Amino acid sequence: MIFQPVLHPALLLVFLIPIVVLAAIGLGRSSAPSERWRWVGRIGMAVLLATILLRPGLPGGSAETLSANTDVLLVVDTTASSIAEDWGSDHQPRMDAIKKDIQAVMDRYPGARFGLISFDREAEMRVPITADTTALRSALDGLTPEVTQNSRGTSIGVAAPLLKDALDLIRNSTEARGRMVFYFGDGEQTADSTPESFADSAKLTDGGMVLGYGTKQGGKMRQTTGTVDGGAAPYIEYQGQPALSVIDQDNLRTIATELGVKYELREPGKKLALPDPPTTTTSGTASTGGHVGTAIELYPYAAGLLAALLGVEMANALAQLIRLRRGALAARKEH
Rank of each mutant, 00 (worst) to 15 (best):
I2L: 15
L7Q: 03
L12H: 06
L13N: 10
V14L: 12
V14F: 13
I17E: 05
V20C: 08
V21C: 13
L22H: 08
I25N: 07
I25C: 11
G26N: 11
R29L: 15
R29F: 14
S34V: 11
R36Q: 14
G41Y: 09
I43H: 05
G44C: 10
G44W: 08
L53D: 00
L54P: 01
P56T: 06
G60R: 07
G61P: 04
G61M: 00
E64V: 13
S67G: 14
L73F: 13
T78G: 05
S89G: 14
H91K: 13
Q92S: 09
P93A: 03
P93E: 10
R94L: 05
K100E: 12
A104I: 11
A104S: 12
A104N: 09
V105A: 01
R108G: 00
R108F: 05
G115L: 00
G115W: 00
F119M: 05
R121P: 07
E122S: 14
E124T: 13
M125S: 11
P128A: 04
P128W: 01
L140S: 06
L140R: 02
E146A: 11
S151M: 10
S151P: 10
S155N: 05
A159V: 00
L162A: 09
L162Y: 03
D165E: 14
A166E: 12
L169H: 15
R171P: 02
E175A: 12
R179D: 04
R179V: 08
M180H: 01
F182C: 00
Y183L: 06
F184Y: 09
G187L: 05
E188I: 04
T190I: 01
T190Q: 02
S193E: 10
T194S: 15
P195W: 01
S197K: 02
A202L: 10
G207E: 03
M209K: 03
L211E: 05
G212S: 05
G212H: 01
Q217C: 08
Q217T: 15
K220D: 10
M221F: 07
T224I: 08
G226Q: 11
G226I: 12
G226E: 05
G226P: 03
D229K: 08
G230F: 06
Y235F: 14
I236D: 11
A243T: 00
L244V: 04
S245G: 02
Q249W: 06
V261K: 00
K262F: 04
E267Q: 13
L272S: 02
L274S: 05
P275C: 03
D276V: 13
P278H: 03
T279S: 14
T279K: 13
T279C: 07
T281K: 09
T281P: 07
T285D: 05
T288L: 12
H291M: 08
Y301V: 15
L306K: 00
A307V: 10
L309C: 11
N316I: 15
N316S: 15
A317Q: 12
L321R: 14
L321K: 14
I322G: 04
A328S: 10
A330M: 06
A330T: 10
A331F: 09
A331V: 12
A331G: 03
R332P: 04
K333P: 08
K333R: 15
E334R: 15
E334H: 11
H335V: 08
